[in-house]
């Protein structure tokens, strides 16, 4: 399946970025073949509505699921509407996008059932 992981860099080996709307970039991975591409987050320096813009970007990449550390209410509403499953990679331990992908494949990551943080601008 096509999965997006929020990252602070430009490759699957870059550090995982725990924020969704304000993540530096998104890594689009095919979880079956392992092939990936990195995409800058257009919302990184948006004045407001980062969650909406980031969600539109992820939807535009054709992702079926996304892994991040936290989802604001606007991101949650947008991703839900787009039918994209939101997975949570909890904890603060430094790790790479590849580490998170491994966790996802191992079924270690739960799905977000609601926005996990208060609205931010």
């Amino acid at each position: 399946m096509k999965l997006v992981i929020s990252i602070a860099g430009d490759s699957l080996q870059s550090p995982f970025d725990a924020r969704f709307g304000r993540a530096a970039a998104f890594c689009l991975v095919d979880s079956d073949t392992g092939s990936w591409t990195a995409h800058a987050n257009p919302a990184l320096e948006a004045a407001g509505g980062a969650g909406v813009q980031a969600a539109q970007c992820v939807a535009g990449l054709g992702a079926q699921a996304v892994v991040s550390g936290a989802y604001g209410p606007k991101a949650y509403a947008s991703l839900s509407a787009a039918g994209i499953a939101m997975h949570l990679a909890p904890g603060n331990a430094p790790r790479t996008g590849a580490d998170v992908l491994a966790q996802f494949k191992a079924g270690e990551l739960s799905q977000a059932q609601a926005a996990t943080q208060d609205g931010r601008h």
């Binding site: 509505g49 909406v52 813009q53 969600a55 539109q56 606007k74 509403a77 947008s78 509407a81 787009a82």
Partner: peptide
């Protein structure tokens, strides 16, 4: 970015 269309939903923020 105050209005977004995602799938079959139009959202207003």
């Amino acid at each position: 970015h105050a209005i977004a269309v995602l799938g079959q939903t139009t959202l207003v923020f």
